[in-house]
């Protein structure tokens, strides 16, 4: 399942379609600490975070994420869309809490 399909299942808004948006998600990471994200050794991961900053996108690029879902309906700094375009990183926002988003993503990934 791709991040675009997950976004649809969550009713989330896709702001930027990056180069990873067509790849199948192989792992999900939920974290607001970027050092924590950097510890993960999985490929094609989806990042769920309540942190709304450029650093989220930079971190996602470093670990080769398929994309980022910013939760909690956070207003994003205007620079984020530009950075996402620049890094060709898929950027999605969801109004759900991170806990609800985790449960929702898991349900979507399990769905046939």
């Amino acid at each position: 399942m791709t991040i675009l399909e997950v976004a649809e299942a969550l009713g989330a808004e896709v702001l930027v379609k990056g180069e990873g948006c067509g790849r199948a998600i192989r792992h999900v990471v939920a974290s607001d600490l970027m050092s924590d994200v950097l510890l993960v050794d999985e490929d094609d991961l989806l990042l769920l975070t309540s942190l709304a900053s450029d650093q989220v996108l930079r971190t996602a690029q470093i670990v080769g994420a398929v994309g980022v879902i910013v939760v909690n309906g956070k207003p994003l700094p205007s620079s984020m869309v530009n950075v996402a375009n620049d890094l060709r990183m898929t950027l999605v926002t969801s109004g759900r809490s991170k806990f609800d988003a985790c449960v929702g993503v898991a349900a979507a990934l399990k769905a046939p």
């Binding site: 999900v28 990471v29 939920a30 974290s31 769920l48 759900r96 991170k98 806990f99 609800d100 985790c102 449960v103 929702g104 993503v105 898991a106 349900a107």
Partner: peptide
């Protein structure tokens, strides 16, 4: 990790259906 344990808590608490 956060994702795994959140999903497990969600299943046990029965929030999956709601959300």
């Amino acid at each position: 990790d956060q994702f795994t344990v959140s999903c497990r808590l969600g299943a046990v608490l029965g929030v999956g259906a709601r959300c």
